[in-house]
Design a protein around this nucleic acid. Structure first.
Lengths: 348, 348
DNA sequence: CTGAAAGCGCTTACAG
DNA sequence: CTGAAAGCGCTTACAG
């Protein structure tokens, strides 16, 4: 894997010139005749001496750490980061944590070792993330994206998750729903889910209701079936607020399998606003985050900080309420009372 | 952005030792006392001298070039590549071409300049891609993923796109469909689409039919609406085979807007088998490619070639037919005859 | 435009 | 364990 790399001396010998001339060709600094240029380049290619078209030295890189690339929210942000990085002639290096704090730490360590110009990351939870504190210690220009509870002095780009989920829940309350279930990723793996749950609680408590316990789902990206029978038996919810679109689509499929139709029997909302949410039927009611733009913003911030042009700051991106077809008026009779469901529930 | 980096000499001065000792601490080679280790590390941190925990040198990298990260097919492959690369202590560097040959070339050039251990890429079309030939000239361990028509001696991982699309089309033919429309990305941006179209032709011609002209859509990833009115007016198809899942979901939404229901009025198939395709309603009938596994395979191949353990080879991954609910028997009366549609078509 | 030579940053046997 | 010194790969004023 490591062939003993040729040196400028080797190239000089083969090209019949001095190492100085080789160096001039390689760096692109200093005058070289076209003839000599060609001889040196040929010799370099023959010997496999690293000599790229323009700028043979590795470009500075920007490190990116996300939970998963297969969730379009993160892929969208990364796409934005890549676009912004490329505009500044930077490459991006990517690692995935798979929503796991141990992997998060090892990937962050590896990214730091690449000596990136800066780092952009979504960690499980900044309050507990070792990866996060390690990056802080490095005093590397860095910003989180999507995360909440990021300390001052560290960059951050996010929407107001709590307010956004409150908005969604209020929509359901105004449609008459009084038993609303929250389904999200495990809070220890996603501070976003935790904050969204708080927004749900805000809305429910504001009308004098009592929030239900959150249903936390283990997930990586392969969205499995979600077993909602227990929660439906216990609470008979007429609506489910789900903490992200991918999971919401799965929840809808699970409900359908339970014999419940959306939105007639149960209303469902998502969160993120991935492209597909707009095209599925029924169209998902959700909160849209400008993922790609948030990626661009985060990259710009980190690059500006790295260049000493700006202080790290917290940026709140605007979310929008994406009206869809997955919510409707609360049915008179809660879904849990439907025969399909209660029958199914008697079985172990 | 480029502060004049401190040298070993500076660190040595501050730590009160020789440059040799500094070098030993930095490289981790050679004996150093715990006391001295600490002094040098402190001095290095104070001066911002690059000195990471373990292995301060940049890890070798694997370059990855994909059309777009926001299409889950590519994100899935990249996730697999990242996983495999990490297992070998490599980082991955990523670039997107946005399905554009010019960007493809500039990104490829940038990736080559990073001196990667190897390169994995999906190009618009290997037969015409300058990026592809440039990588070939570099004699860098490399493999395409998803692409067809890759020359021998270059690695490749893909499913048999033509056979897979033939399989899908045959399914529709067996349901009685005789006017089937092919909708895909522009062939100049996607050799996959071109090959899939051939598979469609194979199936149609095998039953003595005449293939329709392909409808080629410009796309990046923000899947827009697809205007199918012209094609429906001209051919009155009872089925649409779409060259990827993302686009298929958009096509279904467009048909719905035209007042046509799937699969009652029109059958639709996708291609790729992205996670969401399994969960949307009606469940998409499609071909599933093992994207993540293909990413792992491609990464393994390139790493093996780089290590001299294997020759570049072409690997065909198995596709599976994913039965769904978006296809049904051909209706007696073609969809084009529906009143909604023909009326709309009279307007300019 | 080119090379000999000085120099820079880093590493590494060689002494002690 | 540590340093003085030699050395390596590369770059860059300095002559010509």
């Amino acid at each position: 894997m490591e062939r003993p790399t040729a040196t400028t001396r080797d190239v000089a010998a083969r090209a019949g010139c001095s190492t100085a001339t080789v160096s001039r060709v390689v760096t692109g600094h200093g005058p070289v005749s076209a003839e000599m240029q060609k001889r040196v380049v040929d010799a370099a290619l023959d010997l496999g001496f690293p000599l790229q078209q323009a700028g043979n030295r590795r470009r500075p890189v920007l490190g990116v750490l996300v939970p998963s690339l297969t969730n379009p929210v993160f892929a969208g942000a990364v796409a934005g980061i890549e676009q912004r990085a490329r505009a500044s002639e930077l490459s991006i290096i990517i690692g995935q944590s798979n929503y796991d704090t141990a992997q998060e730490l090892s990937v962050a360590t590896a990214l730091i070792a690449e000596r990136p110009v800066g780092l952009i990351m979504t960690v499980c939870d900044p309050l507990t993330s070792e990866a996060f504190t390690r990056v802080q210690r490095q005093e590397l220009p860095a910003a989180t994206i999507y995360n909440e509870d990021v300390p001052e002095g560290f960059g951050a780009v996010s929407v107001d998750n709590r307010a956004a989920m409150r908005r969604l829940t209020e929509e359901l309350l105004s449609l008459g729903h009084r038993s609303i279930l929250f389904v999200g990723g495990r809070f220890s793996s996603s501070d976003r889910a935790a904050h969204r749950y708080r927004g749900y609680c805000d809305a429910v408590e504001a009308v004098g209701g009592r929030p239900l316990q959150p249903m936390q789902v283990d997930f990586i990206d392969a969205v499995q079936d979600v077993d909602l029978t227990g929660a439906f038996a216990a609470h008979g919810p007429t609506a489910v607020v789900v903490s992200n679109d991918m999971l919401a689509v799965t929840v809808i499929a699970s409900l359908r399998r339970m014999g419940l139709s959306v939105p007639q029997d149960v209303s469902v909302t998502g969160f993120d606003g991935i492209d597909l949410a707009r095209h599925v039927f029924p169209r998902l009611t959700t909160i849209t985050q400008p993922s790609r733009a948030m990626g661009v913003l985060a990259a710009s911030l980190v690059l500006d900080v790295a260049a000493g042009r700006r202080r790290p700051q917290h940026i709140r991106a605007d979310f929008t309420f994406a009206s869809g077809e997955t919510i409707g008026p609360a049915p008179c009779r809660p879904a849990a009372a439907s025969s399909t469901f209660t029958t199914g529930n008697r079985n172990p």
